[in-house]
Design a protein around this nucleic acid. Structure first.
Lengths: 193, 193
DNA sequence: CGCGACGTTGATTTGCCTCAACGATTGTGG
DNA sequence: CCACAATCGTTGAGGCAAATCAACGTCGCG
C-alpha cells in the first residue's frame, strides 16, 4: 500500500516540495477492489478520478442490447475516470470495474480543483495527461474509421503487449469492436500463416 | 478582422486584465485561408493551434487507399489543431484545410507555453477546452462501437444542425464513417417515412 | 459551353455478425 | 477435494449491413 508509484509518476513532470507533497497526500483516498468489483456505474456521478497502484481496471458502456463496449484498460501507473461525469459532476454513462484484485488512489474533483488553486503545477500535470489522453482517443477514432478488424487487432497487440497476456479474449474483442467469435477466427487465421 | 470572438470565448472562463489581454494579443497571428487551402499537411510539424473567426475548417487523414477520414469540423468559435503534433512538435499525420473562405487566429505551441507561465489562468482555459474535447472524442469512440450507420447519421444531424446545411454530403459520410453512396441510401429511406 | 465534382440508384460482393453446438477451463458450493 | 455450473474459446452455417463497382443526371464553375 505504497503511494510511491503515483509520486514517481508526478515527478516525471515536476518536482513537489515536501509541503506540497503532504498537502496533496492529505487529499488522497486509498481503496482496494476485488475482482469484478464495480467502482463506478451508469447514472451515477463520478466523484473521483482513480490512479491504479496494482491490478487492472477497465471502463465500458452497456448498450441497449446489453453488450459491453470497452473504452479503456488501466494497468498500474494509469489514471482512469468517467471524464464526462468527473468534469461536469453530472450522472455519467459508463461503468468502471476491476479486472483483477486492484489497489487504487482516489482524488475527488473538488479536491483536484482545490489543488489546482494551491499548487498550479498540478494543473499543468493534469493538463498534460489530458492532452495525451485526447491524442490516444483521437487515434482510436481514426483507427475505427480507416482500419479493418484484423489491423485493429494487430495494432492492439503492438501497443499493449503486456495486456494481451492477461486479458480474456472477449475483452480485447470488445475493445477493438468485434464479436468474440470473430476475433477467434482472426487469431486462428494468423497462426496458420 | 476582429478578434472579439476569441476574447468573448475566453471571457466565458475567466476575466483578463488589460495588460494580460495585450500580452496575449501580441502572441497571436492572423491568417486568411481560401476555399480548399491547406493549412497543415501530413508529415509536417503543426506549430500552431488555430481559432476560427469565420468560415469553417476540417481536419482529416488520408489512408493507404487514398480515402479521406474526417476527424473534426471547426466552425467559428472553435479551436482546431493536430493535437499530437502540436504537443509533441513532431511531424503529424493529419491534414487541416478550409472548407470555405476562412479567417483564423494562430497561437504557436511555444507562445502558448510561454503564456501558461505568465498567465496561469490560460493554462486553466486550455485545460478545460482539452477536457471537453476529450469527452467528445470519447463519445465518438463509443458511437463507433455501439451505433449503426443510421444512428450515427441521426446523431450527427442532432449535434451539428448548422453544419448539415452547408457541408457537402460526402464529408458528412466521411465523418460518420460510411461511403457517400451508402449515406445517400440512408437519406432516401428516411425521406419516404 | 464543357468539364469535373457531386448525388443517386442498382447489382454484386464482402466483412463481420448471429445463432448454435461443442470441448476446455475456471470457479464454487457442498 | 470433488462435482457441477458457469464462463470462455472454437468452429461452422447462414444472414445482414455496408462496401464496391458502374452507370447516369445534375449542378457549379472556369
Amino acid at each position: 500500500m505504497t503511494l510511491d508509484l503515483l509520486f514517481v509518476n508526478i515527478s516525471k513532470h515536476f518536482l513537489l516540495t515536501e509541503v506540497e507533497k503532504n498537502y496533496f497526500h492529505s487529499k488522497l483516498h486509498f481503496r482496494k477492489l476485488k475482482k469484478k468489483e464495480i467502482y463506478i456505474q451508469e447514472n451515477q456521478v463520478c466523484e473521483s478520478a482513480a490512479f491504479v497502484l496494482s491490478g487492472c481496471l477497465r471502463s465500458y458502456t452497456i448498450d441497449d442490447n446489453g453488450f459491453e463496449h470497452i473504452l479503456q484498460f488501466a494497468p498500474p501507473d494509469w489514471w482512469i475516470t468517467d471524464m464526462f461525469s468527473f468534469i461536469s459532476q453530472k450522472p455519467g454513462t459508463i461503468y468502471i470495474d476491476a479486472i483483477e484484485v486492484s489497489e487504487i488512489i482516489l482524488l475527488s474533483r473538488a479536491d483536484q480543483l482545490d489543488i489546482f488553486e494551491k499548487i498550479p503545477a498540478f494543473e499543468r500535470y493534469f493538463r498534460i495527461l489530458t492532452e495525451n489522453s485526447l491524442v490516444s482517443y483521437r487515434k482510436r477514432v481514426m483507427d475505427g474509421l480507416s482500419l479493418t478488424a484484423v489491423e485493429r487487432y494487430h495494432d492492439f497487440c503492438k501497443r499493449y503487449p503486456t495486456l494481451i497476456e492477461c486479458l480474456p479474449q472477449k475483452q480485447i474483442a470488445s475493445y477493438i469492436g468485434v464479436t468474440p467469435e470473430f476475433l477467434s477466427k482472426i487469431r486462428s487465421k494468423v497462426k496458420i500463416v
